[in-house]
């Protein structure tokens, strides 16, 4: 029997176990094949829930399991590193009709994905803050991520974790930094993303600063988050 036939039946519960798979008495494998079916979908669904715990909490465990089952079948991992799987979940959620009433959910998933990526990103050495001048240029640390949303994703993230008040409607841009090994979230001023984009493009601190924007708070978050490193030459 080909692995193709095995694979097709694995992912389609309506298909009977392929012929040629037997129990010790030579009978069709039946429930014994279902063990493999269950292992594939359950292990991947659990991995997705572990990676996106806040999304899971928003929709509920049972709903998330059903959603994950669909995602597993449509977007299985493309390599064995489970930590890298799930990058397409936010886009999947945008087109998944059962969550259309939760328009903020894809951006919350983006935030959780950013946290995962930051956690596994390369280590880096931050610049010495005492050397920073208006002429300084930087590279952003590999663990830095920026998630911009029309929704209060940081407030939703905290509220869902039982760690903040009920979110009020507002757009939020969230910076992810990793001072040592634990990613941190900081809500940014609406002008800060343009500032970050300038720094990332190699502009000096002065060039990157948008007109009338006080960089103090953002710069502090970047420094304490270890987000500023020496530029690549």
């Amino acid at each position: 029997m080909s692995q193709s036939a095995f694979h097709t039946a694995l992912l389609d519960p309506a298909t009977p176990a392929p012929e040629g798979l037997i129990d010790p008495k030579g009978r069709p494998a039946g429930k014994r094949f279902d063990v493999y079916r269950n292992n594939v979908v359950v292990s991947l669904s659990e991995a997705l829930a572990e990676a996106f715990p806040v999304c899971q909490a928003i929709v509920g465990e049972e709903f998330f399991t059903a959603l994950a089952g669909q995602y597993v079948r449509q977007h299985p991992p493309r390599d064995p590193r489970i930590a890298t799987w799930g990058t397409t979940l936010p886009a999947f959620l945008e087109t998944f009709p059962p969550v259309a009433h939760l328009p903020y959910l894809p951006d919350v998933a983006r935030l959780e994905q950013a946290l995962r990526e930051s956690y596994h990103a390369a280590d880096s050495t931050p610049v010495d803050p005492s050397t920073i001048t208006t002429e300084s240029r930087f590279a952003l640390a590999p663990a830095v991520r920026l998630v911009q949303s029309l929704y209060p994703i940081h407030a939703i993230w905290r509220f869902t974790r039982g760690d903040g008040p009920k979110p009020a409607p507002q757009a939020q841009s969230v910076l992810v930094t990793r001072p040592s090994y634990d990613p941190q979230l900081t809500v940014l001023h609406p002008q800060a993303p343009a500032f970050l984009a300038g720094l990332a493009a190699g502009e000096t601190l002065e060039e990157a600063t948008p007109d009338g924007f006080d960089i103090t708070e953002t710069l502090t978050a970047l420094i304490t988050g270890g987000a500023l490193t020496e530029p690549q030459l």
Binding site: Q3, H7, L10, Y36, P76, P77, R78, D79, P80
Partner: peptide
């Protein structure tokens, strides 16, 4: 065991004849 088919990783140790 096998665990990948046509580029899709199935996260289980699947049996062989």
């Amino acid at each position: 065991a096998w665990s990948t088919h046509e580029g899709a990783f199935l996260n289980d140790l699947l049996p062989l004849p």
